[in-house]
């Protein structure tokens, strides 16, 4: 799938995250800000990359403002943002879990 418009999901409240995505031509740029970046930054980024790969997203600007969200929340918010930012949803739901 291809991100065709800017989209937003999530909140800034504790244990959540806000995800903002935007179209990019060729590159995938992930900008992660987190209150727990020292301990979990690498883990969060791995979850983000894995989720995007499963969604078939290989280009885009992904800006994440994390407030200590669990991995499942990171996946859910990211999926929602992508769903809002693409024209046609072609990802396989069963492959996402």
């Amino acid at each position: 799938m291809k991100i065709v418009r800017e989209a937003l999901a999530g909140t800034l409240e504790s244990s959540d995250l806000m995800v903002r995505i935007a179209p990019r031509d060729d590159e995938l740029e992930i900008v992660l800000q987190s209150e727990v970046i020292q301990q979990f930054g690498a883990q969060i980024e791995a979850v983000v990359r894995d989720t995007l790969a499963k969604l078939g997203i290989f280009a885009g600007l992904i800006v994440i403002e994390d407030k200590g969200a669990l991995d499942c929340v990171v996946r859910a918010r990211l999926q929602t943002a992508v769903q809002r930012g693409v024209d046609a949803w072609t990802a396989d739901w069963s492959a996402l879990s």
Binding site: L8, T11, L12, E13, S14, M18, K67
Partner: peptide
Amino acid sequence: ALGLKLLTEIV
């Protein structure tokens, strides 16, 4: 922590 909620809403 109303500020975070408020900024979420305005964004």
